[in-house]
């Protein structure tokens, strides 16, 4: 008997229909694989060019891989005095970590208070915070610069990081989250003699690790990748972030292509690693902010 495994021969399934669906699935995977190659190609291009010599990159003959990977491009990159890659990476790391810790902390504190602590004027405070969501953030860079300049924070990494620590949107998300938090846990804490601060520190924070990590990672990625505000505030090379350093390379008079792409590789690598490890949380963070927003 020449029956196809898995197909019940007694049921006269329409062969045309089965075939049509099959072709649909094959088409789906052909398109998906083609798009995957297209989407990953820029990553390949960074690595290829970062490890090539300048003549290899600009050669008329396309080659898929350097004849001899030029790891020395890494040294050239870090020894270039005109654009300080080393301090750029350090500045970006400090800014992103401070941003992750404090933006998340401040927003979760406010979110908890708005969701769970009875106080007069709470509704008004909530609407004042919500109203700031109407203001498009990037547009206010001119007036914000004026204030930061008056506080004497221009050309410091604190001028770059501090104004970004207060996210009304994150407050909103934490408030939503704590509104759904089980009351029983809070009441158990009360019975154990905990006040509002104890409940927040010992019960709420440890039990909201998922949302803390999700929004924390998103704020880390956003601040590492930010460009306009660091460009505006960090005007001297010592306060440049890695993005400003790379932009300076890119718009310079003479361009050293291998160094440029090595810089891109070094600037992107930490984030690609974090992304791959934390993807589950990032998806959760995007889902939270995308749907509620």
């Amino acid at each position: 008997m020449a029956t196809v495994p898995g197909v019940n021969p007694t049921l006269p399934a329409s062969p045309a229909r089965r075939l049509r669906i099959r072709w649909g699935e094959i088409l789906r995977y052909v398109v998906l694989v083609a798009l995957t190659i297209l989407f990953l190609f820029p990553f390949y291009l960074i690595v290829r060019n970062a490890l090539m010599t300048q003549p290899e990159i600009t050669s008329f003959e396309w080659s898929w891989w350097p004849a001899m990977p030029q790891w020395s491009n890494l040294e050239v990159l870090f020894n270039d005095a005109s654009a300080p890659m080393g301090s750029g990476l350090r500045n970006s790391a400090i800014i992103a970590i401070v941003n992750l810790v404090f933006q998340t902390l401040f927003a979760s504190m406010a979110g908890y208070a708005l969701a769970r602590i009875p106080a007069r004027g709470k509704t008004l405070v909530f609407f004042v915070i919500l109203s700031t969501l109407m203001v498009p953030s990037a547009v206010t860079f001119v007036p914000s610069y004026v204030v930061v300049a008056n506080l004497g924070l221009v050309n410091t990494i604190w001028g770059i990081v501090i104004p970004g620590l207060f996210s009304a949107f994150a407050v909103f998300l934490f408030r939503q989250f704590y509104l759904d938090f089980p009351v029983e846990i809070e009441e158990a804490g009360r019975l154990d003699g905990l006040g509002y601060f104890g409940i927040y520190g010992r019960l709420l924070l440890p039990n909201s690790m998922g949302i803390l990590i999700a929004l924390g990672v998103l704020s880390f990625i956003n601040s590492w990748n930010a460009f306009l505000w660091p460009l505006v505030v960090g005007r001297s090379p010592s306060s440049w972030t890695v993005q400003v350093v790379l932009s300076t390379f890119l718009t310079a008079q003479t361009i050293n292509l291998p160094m440029l792409f090595m810089g891109a590789a070094v600037g992107a690598l930490p984030l690609v690693v974090i992304f791959l490890i934390m993807q589950r949380y990032i998806v959760e963070g995007v889902r939270l902010s995308g749907i509620k927003g």
């Binding site: 820029p42 960074i46 990625i221 990748n225 460009f227 993005q243 790379l246 690609v272 974090i274 791959l276």
Partner: peptide
């Protein structure tokens, strides 16, 4: 994964 990459890069 391109989400991890900055506009500058």
């Amino acid at each position: 994964i391109p989400t991890a990459i900055s506009y500058v890069i």
